[in-house]
Design a protein around this nucleic acid. Structure first.
Lengths: 415, 415
DNA sequence: TCTATTTTTTCGAGCCTCGAAAAAATACTG
DNA sequence: CAGTATTTTTTCGAGGCTCGAAAAAATAGA
């Protein structure tokens, strides 16, 4: 049920709008902000003068090209790096990494460590996460009070409210309420995000021309994940992070999937599935725990060299991904796709079968026009997305308080 | 890119909010409206007095229970039926129906006719639609000027902007810009909507407790269609009405579908597919043009009587629907489902295989808790949904002008 | 008839945005 | 180098909107 707009919400929302405009544009002048937001110059002037007074924005040198033009030069507005800081925690298979990022988006400090997520106890896993955050917060160079938010990205399913990990392939434990744990421990607001969703957000910031309102980010790694942006908003399930593309059914009663079920897309296109098929172990073979990136690269090299089981394994992966995408396109219409992860480096081996499969589906009519991009390294993307996510929260909640708390319609912007 | 909120948008949006509250609640008092919208009593008082002055709302008798209570009795506000009227046109296989509906939602007049949509020329089809609308508009009892909008619902794919039918199984012709045609002819704003989306909207109005923020309406008819409401908003594709559940892939390279491709869910669960399997014609048999409702009912009766090819046909349909829903649930999480259309009357034959299939999928963990409801008659639903759609447009655009025109975030409410 | 209670309206205060005009800051021009 | 043109930014008053508090209205009970 939507709710009325109160008078004081107005300023809050427009403040948030101005901050968002500065974050997107880098160093826009007041005039540019007025143009992009549609608000009047006087309003922008008032709001930005407030924000500068509060230490959220700073005036910087006029933008470059300005020196050639006549008239009063534009004054660029930029985010004050010291206004706040956020922390990102990325938890993936056997790997934990954390970074502190200033309000302008620059990394201040970071730390990474390997750990054995699959065998760790629940408490040990939580302990590692809390510990690594604590060490960063104890950094003498860092003003602890400035850390306004923690965003934890995890491979796996999270709940809609971004409070907990519900299930993850990296650990046997389920339902870990990381957000509550971190908030209780440090008194800093925290959220738990799905890794592929963060990839999507990062892609949007990196290349807003290509990844604007509708696009798909697919993680081709040990498992298959997806981040989906539709109509400018991150798509999530009704109760969880959703978008479990890897567990759409490719072949009823087909190959054994890591999730215990049969015939999922992942059971053909995940690293373990490609490995299994390349080694000709049969579709019922228990998925191996992990395949190293080096092994996957070797597999791809072998597949490129001669037509053998390796090549066939990639073909099957392409077919599964193609039919899966075809079904997805039946629901949402075709959109640009980013293939991310180690197997994205082998996309040349996957693409032919994938395109052939898509051509057999409802999305097939535009098969040729569907564009794929590849990015072999998912970790930097996840980190960036996480950082932008956290910063956007700070923008909207801390510096424009209340704008979100009311109306159900507001503030669904992706990062 | 979202846009700032201007000062004059405020009143417009809150006016729209008040109108919406009255439409939903029936005869709410000003106090109730204040409670549901979160606005102050003074604001509601001012807005409703404006709306009454403009003839949009009327004061009606105090609500029933009020007479027993102490204090000044509440005055119910209701929609003025004469404030406007809308027209719905429903075009389905071999059938055209039109209705004029007053602002309060009551049918004023209607007309229906059979026609052979599959063989008609493009011009004849358009001519029939224009003609039936013209006849209604010429009704002497009707004040033509009051018709504020026409909504045309069609079985098939429409574009995102609700301007045109892109493709439909009921006619070989494609890309018919019905909205432009009707607007040019009658000078009344028109939209073109997907039939299953209208079903979803109608279900929401009929039973807002069950069908609130997240649910699925599936049409089991000659073809398989879907209307999807997620997070309170109608889900559409990026370029079309989308949600082509019937053309998700159930079995790669499987049974021949009416769309010319293979293995779609519809190729197992559409009327023609059930018919084909029951008659044991093989999966490559050309889909028949139409199967009468009577024939389908006979098929269901036969299936209930003995275990033969008819029962097996329904089992296969259930399996395809189950795996399809499983894949859908992987993306959006499970949600309540309404099965609509003639085969919904045979849901007892479909359900066992359907539930078994879902249990094999990612949604399967909650298999038992997924609830299905059935409604054998789709036409009334489509009509109702269409009417509510058109009325909501009038509410938002005519009586609260500008509220939509700006911000990209606003007014995405379903019906 | 009077009092208690509830709904609705009225009224002034406080914000917010807007447009127009003024002020500020620069490039061009002769 | 002073004056003019141009562009950006700020200032200021007008108009609107919502809100809270108080008043008015309308009824049930005593």
């Amino acid at each position: 049920m939507s709710v009325g707009i109160r008078h004081d919400d107005l300023r809050r929302r427009n403040r948030a709008m101005v901050i968002a405009a500065v974050r997107r544009a880098g160093q826009p002048s007041r005039t540019e902000i007025a143009a992009t937001t549609g608000l009047s110059h006087s309003t922008i002037s008032a709001i930005s003068s407030d924000l500068i007074g509060e230490g959220i924005l700073t005036e910087s040198k006029p933008s470059e090209a300005g020196s050639l033009r006549r008239g009063r030069p534009q004054v660029g507005l930029s985010l004050n790096p010291e206004a706040a800081a956020v922390m990102t925690v990325v938890l993936s298979l056997n790997f934990l990494s954390v970074a502190v990022i200033d309000y302008a988006g620059q990394v201040i400090s970071e730390e990474q460590r390997r750990l054995d997520t699959q065998t760790m106890s629940r408490d040990a896993l939580i302990g590692e996460c809390v510990g690594i955050v604590r060490r960063r917060l104890e950094d003498p160079d860092l003003d602890v009070r400035s850390v306004a938010r923690i965003a934890l990205a995890i491979q796996g399913i999270t709940d809609t409210h971004a409070r907990a990990m519900l299930w993850s392939p990296i650990t046997p434990h389920t339902d870990i309420a990381f957000a509550d744990i971190l908030e209780d421990e440090f008194g800093i607001p925290a959220t738990v995000e799905n890794d592929c969703n963060m990839m999507a957000i990062a892609l949007r910031w990196r290349d807003p021309d290509r990844y604007r309102d509708d696009f798909i980010a697919i993680l081709l790694s040990h498992g298959i994940g997806m981040g989906l942006v539709l109509k400018g908003e991150l798509f999530t399930g009704t109760h969880s992070s959703g978008g479990e593309f890897g567990h759409m059914i490719h072949q009823p009663n087909g190959a054994l999937c890591r999730c215990g079920r049969r015939g999922c897309v992942e059971a053909y296109a995940g690293n373990y599935a490609i490995w299994r098929n390349a080694r000709q172990l049969g579709e019922d073979a228990e998925p191996v725990a992990d395949v190293s990136d080096a092994d996957m690269r070797a597999l791809a090299t072998a597949a490129r060299e001669k037509d053998g089981p390796e090549r066939e394994a990639y073909r099957k992966a392409g077919e599964a991904l193609g039919y899966g995408l075809g079904s997805l396109f039946a629901l949402i219409d075709p959109a640009p796709v980013a293939m991310v992860g180690v197997s994205a480096a082998a996309f040349d081996l996957i693409e032919p079968a994938l395109r052939e499969a898509i051509a057999q589906t409802a999305g097939g009519q535009h098969s040729k026009s569907i564009s794929f991009d590849t990015e072999p390294n998912e970790l930097p993307l996840i980190r960036e997305g996480c950082a932008m996510r956290a910063l956007t929260f700070v923008d909207q909640e801390i510096f424009a308080p209340g704008a979100q708390a009311r109306g159900s319609v507001v503030g669904k912007n992706v990062a």
